[in-house]
Simulated scan of single mutants.
Amino acid sequence: MNPAHWPREHPEANRLLHVSPSSGRISDRRVEHLPELLRSGDLLVVNDAATLPSSLHGLTVAGGPIELRLLAREEEGTWTAVLFGAGDWRMRTEDRPAPPLLTVGTQLVLGTLKACVVEVLPPSPRLLRVAFEAQGAELWAGLYRSGKPVQYSYLSGPLALWHIQTAYAARPWAAEAPSAGLPLTWALLLELRRRGVRFASLTHAAGLSSTGDAALDAALPRPERFELPASTVEAIHATRASGGRVVAVGTTVVRALEGRAAQAGGRLTAGEGVTDLLMGPGFIPKVVSGLLTGVHEPATSHYMLLQAFAPLALLREAAQIAEKRGYLGHEFGDSCLILDA
């Protein structure tokens, strides 16, 4: 499937493949038709994490050029990150030269920031835990001064930070954009609300989608933190009690909600947590009725998660239709709604 090379000026006009699992029907729509596909009383749950400038270029103290892509901030204030060798986004990640092998205590100079390797993590020597010398406001200012958005070689130019923010982005938790929500403009959200569709949010620290390292990519997604507000839990309970459907915008929302429910024996509660839930065929969702997501290639971990919502044969048929009709993939690409009509 061909990738979208650049953000669209009117993302609500992106194509939308509607897959109805119970009937097996697949229809070709637009994201702007979402108000016609949802019902009054349904609840749309989004991931409101803002996207960090997670790509930091710099040098080791020995002078070797590197790129550090932040993966997640840990509770104690350190960060997990993936190390890349020389080069930038214009080169495919799998074609980048191998980075130097770093050991605990190695100092890194990353623009205006300095960091130290505090741990090398399995399954790859490229997966590190680092501590920044700066902390608090000084660290955040340095990240926004020196960092760039993570991006990949299929894009036609360098991204600005605003290109990868959803309309409702709040706290900067995500390493890469929760891209399923990028087509949801405020005009579209307001139209959904006018038609009786409610809106709730959670914050989930979306990680990296690809590193070019087979061992690392096989371990993605790693455990990711989330925060589920009490107001969202209440909205979900009220929606289900009234017969409405809970529609997740993106796989990160599914992992947060279903991971929280799985940790509590099927009961959804508010609060912070970490989810390592990996969903696939045979998993029965306890909270989420349907999913708005991007158009995913069959080999991705996201595609495995979709099999909790629709049978594999139907998903393969949908992928073939999307390919034949010229749907575009990746973060600025077209969308898929898996929800019974």
Score class of each variant (00 low, 15 high):
V246F: 15
E272G: 15
R194L: 07
L139T: 13
L68H: 05
E32G: 04
H330C: 05
A98V: 12
P97L: 09
A235G: 03
F84T: 04
L139H: 14
K148S: 03
L71Y: 09
G290N: 01
S156E: 10
A299N: 13
V61E: 15
Y303A: 02
G63C: 04
Q320H: 12
V274S: 12
R171L: 07
V104F: 12
M304Q: 10
S40A: 15
A200S: 10
P100G: 13
V130W: 03
L305H: 02
G77P: 12
S124N: 06
P53Y: 09
I66W: 12
A170D: 10
Y168I: 07
A230S: 06
I284H: 03
N14I: 03
G196K: 11
G265V: 13
W6Y: 09
H18V: 15
T51S: 12
P178S: 09
R39W: 15
L190T: 02
W6F: 14
G147W: 10
R225Y: 11
S201F: 03
S20F: 01
P123S: 02
F332Y: 06
E317N: 07
M279I: 01
R222V: 04
A235D: 11
L315S: 02
R195G: 12
V197L: 05
F199G: 00
K324C: 01
D28T: 09
P3C: 08
R225F: 01
T185Y: 02
R193S: 14
L68P: 05
D340G: 14
G326E: 08
L228Y: 05
A86C: 03
H237Y: 04
W162K: 15
E75C: 07
R15S: 07
R73S: 08
L216M: 15
E227Q: 11
P221Q: 00
G147R: 11
E176W: 08
A167W: 04
I236T: 08
A50D: 06
G212D: 11
L315H: 02
K148D: 03
T185F: 07
G147Q: 08
R240Q: 15
L339A: 08
S20M: 07
